[in-house]
Amino acid sequence: MSDDVQTQVQATDQGSVLIITINRPDAKNAMNKAAAEGIAAALDRLDAEDDLRVAILTGAGGTFCSGMDLKGFLRGETPFVEGRGFGGLTQQSPAKPIIAAVEGYALAGGLELMISCDLVVANANAKFGIPEVKRGLAAAAGGLMKLPDQIPHKVAMEMALTGEFIDAARAHELGLVNRVTDGSAMDGAMELARAICANGPLAVRISKQIIEESRGWSLESRWDEQAKLTPLVFASEDAREGAAAFAEKRAPNWKGK
């Protein structure tokens, strides 16, 4: 990554967890091209390195992401990565799980980044919304398509057409957020990440793949489509190790194969 990209996004390891931090606090972590490229590069690394099991996406300075950098937009800059979408994430998810740790605001493109993650942990004071219509824009980085998949249709419609925000309690009630914390969202996300890391990495990856892809499978084909993937899990060394560890009352030693 270039120095500019490394400045805009910081990627650090904590054991098997890759923490990806949007580092533009003076701009409320508004997404620009360099930050999008930084996220994409970090996610490439997540999937490429066997020792990394889970990523956490967060923002520096008490804000998750306030959306697209409008000053950059006026200069003709687009914070998209080809094939990956807005912020290097919204059109292509990594094969491994990614958790959003949300403090402050997840708005516009920031919300679209959040809902492109597999799980969400948010501080109780967080706020969420797609206010693009207030600026004569549309939530075209996935908000208008993904949000109705994750919350009731009419609630998604209201958020899109009014541009108004919802709070963390309402987001949790709707199922948009997995866990709400009174303290640090990062602490809650790390707890969730560690729970995932304790499991077989191949089983986790295939389980995520089936949950994501099965939404596009027909009722007639879904069992056949799943049958193309699950044998990879059941015939794996990890499957045998998991059974042996259970029988021997010990922690499993996963190999990811």
Rank of each mutant, 00 (worst) to 15 (best):
H153F: 04
K154E: 15
R53P: 09
V5T: 15
V121I: 14
V120G: 02
L18F: 11
M190V: 15
A48L: 08
T230H: 01
R53W: 07
A124S: 15
G256P: 02
Q91I: 00
A193G: 07
N253I: 01
T7C: 06
N178C: 06
A235W: 06
A185S: 15
G62W: 13
E112H: 00
A169I: 02
P152D: 12
Q6V: 11
L57P: 04
Q150A: 07
D187Q: 14
A55R: 09
V120M: 05
W217H: 08
F234Q: 07
S184R: 10
E225N: 14
G110F: 00
M31Y: 08
A34M: 14
S93E: 11
R170N: 10
S184E: 12
M1K: 11
A126T: 11
K71S: 13
E164Q: 10
D238I: 02
G72E: 13
M114F: 01
S2E: 14
A30R: 10
I130N: 05
D26I: 04
T230L: 13
N253Q: 08
T58D: 05
M186L: 15
E132K: 00
Q226W: 06
D224Y: 05
I99R: 00
L144N: 09
E49W: 09
K208L: 12
E158P: 01
A185F: 09
A244E: 15
G38H: 11
G62E: 13
D26G: 03
Q150G: 03
A122T: 10
E164H: 07
M1D: 14
S236W: 07
G83W: 01
V233Q: 07
V155K: 08
L111V: 00
A193S: 09
A34C: 14
A185C: 13
K146Q: 13
G188D: 11
G136K: 11
V121S: 06
N125H: 12
E82Y: 00
L176R: 02
R53Y: 11
E112L: 00
A244G: 11
H153W: 03
I56V: 14
Q92A: 08
A40E: 13
E112F: 00
D13M: 08
D69V: 08
M159L: 15
K96P: 06
G136V: 12
K96Y: 04
A160Q: 08
